[in-house]
Amino acid sequence: MTTPLLYAGGGILLFSIGLHALLIRRHLLRKILAINIMGSGVFMVFIAIGARGTDAVGDPVTQVMVLTGIVVSLCFTAVAIALTIRMHNLTNCTTFATDEESSLD
């Protein structure tokens, strides 16, 4: 069991935990958190891949990718929170209403 493999396994675990929470938790903030945890899991896999080389420095390309990914997920989190606040202001509710889930008409 090498360290990179441990990190990769941890990343996959985080991804699964996030996925579970995204689907099960009803509160929108929890869902947003869950998505962020999933993202962190993926970034950990990338870091593990970058560190797998023999040289001490690690692969700069994966680090660049992770940085970009963090920026992207930051944008998404901001938009998601803005939408959630707007929804809370409108409906005083922080979950997807059940009737919306079932009906479109």
Binding site: L22, L23, I24, F96, E101, S102
Partner: peptide, 9 residues
């Protein structure tokens, strides 16, 4: 199918 949990499964 439209429920997020079912869709997730």
């Amino acid at each position: 199918l439209r429920q997020l949990s079912v869709a997730g499964v």
